[in-house]
Design a protein around this nucleic acid. Structure first.
Lengths: 339, 339
DNA sequence: TCCGCATCTGGGAGCGCTCCCAGAACCCGC
DNA sequence: GCGGGTTCTGGGAGCGCTCCCAGATGCGGA
């Protein structure tokens, strides 16, 4: 029984080389798209690959080469998983779509209780060529820490501190600016906002947009209550706003999930929506369409966000110079019944 | 400049062997948990590993060994992404949690338009040791196809056909049975259901539970409308039910996302919930808590589902004999305002 | 005493690639 | 003609492990 251990089936690079009538080295050059290969050799190799159905061994490439052929997607979801869920799935879809067809593996990491040090050690330990970090909280040190070790990193969502890794984010500022302008165009006179927490860039950017929109028209910007991306806190915030300004006629809520709570409070107090009070949310999550009444909201394209992050990282890994440091993705207003 | 190419930092197995005063082979044995290692050596190796902060090179292990040290999570999300989203995130969380600490990489695959053949080829090509397949539609051939190639597979959600790969699923049948019994205990006389599509096991199982619950009390089981896991189709179904039975006093809806649509129709027609009509959903998704009124629903623990699938697969890979072929996870009724 | 078996150990081949090196072939201008 | 470049090629070392093999040691029974 000289069977040997069971190995992966399929041809090796050596086989391809023989069939193509060239050396292993040349096949390797073709696979990796290097220059200094004659057109004749290149064609021959491609034919041989197709003929044999060859697919390179990922482990061997990684072991022999100086790169890991893998990137990590790190989800830093400290708390607030409610916000994270649909967002997260969209990002993932985008990342995956952008990776399709390339020989790059996607490693998924989520913040486990014990991690921290270990996570950084793993990521900078050569297991991956780069990392996509999605952190909701602006003060998360991970993107910066990783970036400072020299690992190519793209952050999803603007880091509050700034100056660290390049980031890709939805244009939260202009999104909410547009929402406020829309409310003003509806002749609303007293426009409040339920803002996100102060420690999240997404919250602050949306708040800034609201402020600018009102300031443009010389309207006061004092009707702000901060909240924390849960329906309950959205409801509480709405109650406080109504107490402070019983005559408000519009609310811009920085997330659909909070808007749902706000809607409930408004209805409980007998306000008609949108006749008495217009409500605009943000995200265009599944909640917006199912809310009663259906929510007018600012759509951000989360899948596109994932794609763009991935594109940016791969471009950097590919040695692309002069890449944009950071990028903002456009948002759009989706009009439904609440405003 | 004899710098050499830049390699991964960190100690090699050789280093650990030297520090521990044993051979490479022995270190390898300890890492892989083999027998035939003395307690003394084992301890020495563990100390050396801790001292050096050693972590084995994944590529090298895979290349040298007969296994890939990786599993795939395949999401077969043909359409119906609305259902998939939160579900999907929960599964992922569970899989990840169960994998923590083990040296197994998670590869993510989603059905791309072009895939099919390629996907099967990749999975059975030795890149992974096993696969977790989450397919919402019961007729998806992927679990069975993979299983028949001999690749260890665990399916998330019961496959309609049966007989293929082992699966883990929520106990949809007993979940809805419990919901119906609860409605009966509330003295509801005419209990309808909005069921899922006929081609999804999750839909059929929940329907069976409803039937049994009614049959137990000799109640008729004709008030069924099939629908497709969207709020719009839930609304349509509710309208049809009201047309067929204007005097119904309870509805069991096979998914929260459909229940939201049903709720809207009931309210539009002036029915008070739960006074006139009690509504029970299924899933306990984020929609349930934010609905108006908050939805009484059957909770399934999706994260636990992910964990269990992973556990089952890893146990099989570990050579565990006599594993349960398939498993059902308990559900529980979450009482809110709608019933 | 000596054999057999179970337990433990180290040496070293080799997994399938990449990348360095040395060299062949060819072009250019002087 | 010759030196210098650029373009192309093959050979082969070696990435960091696992796993096979051969050998050492210990223990029980004939």
């Amino acid at each position: 029984m000289t069977e040997g251990r069971s190995r992966r089936p399929g041809p090796r690079i050596e086989e391809v080389a023989r069939v193509a009538g060239v050396s292993k080295s040349t096949v390797s050059r073709v696979i990796n798209g290097e220059k200094y290969v004659s057109e004749r050799s290149r064609q021959a190799v491609h034919r041989a690959i197709a003929l044999l159905g060859y697919s390179p061994n990922h482990a061997a490439r990684t072991l022999a080469g100086s790169k890991a052929n893998a990137i990590a997607l790190v989800i830093s979801e400290q708390g607030s998983r409610v916000l994270a869920d649909p967002f997260f799935a969209g990002i993932l879809r985008g990342v995956h779509a952008e990776l399709a067809g390339r020989h790059v593996q996607l490693l998924l990491m989520m913040n486990q209780p014990l991690d921290g040090e270990d996570q950084v050690a793993y990521l900078t330990g050569g297991h991956v060529d780069g990392a996509l970090v999605v952190s909701l909280h602006g003060e998360d040190p991970l993107p910066r820490t990783l970036h400072e070790t020299g690992l190519p990193v793209v952050s999803g969502g603007r880091p509050l501190a700034g100056g660290g890794a390049p980031f890709v984010d939805s244009d939260n500022f202009n999104g909410s600016l547009g929402a406020v302008r829309f409310l003003i165009s509806l002749n609303r006179q007293k426009i409040a906002t339920i803002a996100g927490p102060r420690d999240m860039a997404v919250g602050m950017d949306r708040l800034s947009g609201w402020r600018c929109g009102l300031a443009e028209h010389g309207m006061p910007v004092d009707l702000v209550v901060h909240s924390d991306f849960t329906p309950e806190s959205g409801a509480l915030a709405m109650e406080e706003l109504l107490r402070r300004a019983p005559d408000l006629d519009a609310v811009f809520v920085a997330a659909d999930i909070m808007a749902v709570g706000a809607l409930r409070v408004l209805q409980a107090q007998g306000r008609r929506i949108p006749d008495d009070v217009a409500v605009v949310g943000f995200d265009d999550s599944v909640l917006a369409a199912t809310a009663t009444p259906p929510l007018t909201t600012v759509r951000q394209n989360v899948e596109q966000l994932g794609r763009t992050m991935t594109w940016r990282l791969l471009a950097e890994l590919g040695g692309d110079e002069k890449l944009p440091q950071s990028m903002l993705l456009p948002t759009s207003l989706v009009r439904r019944a609440s405003a």
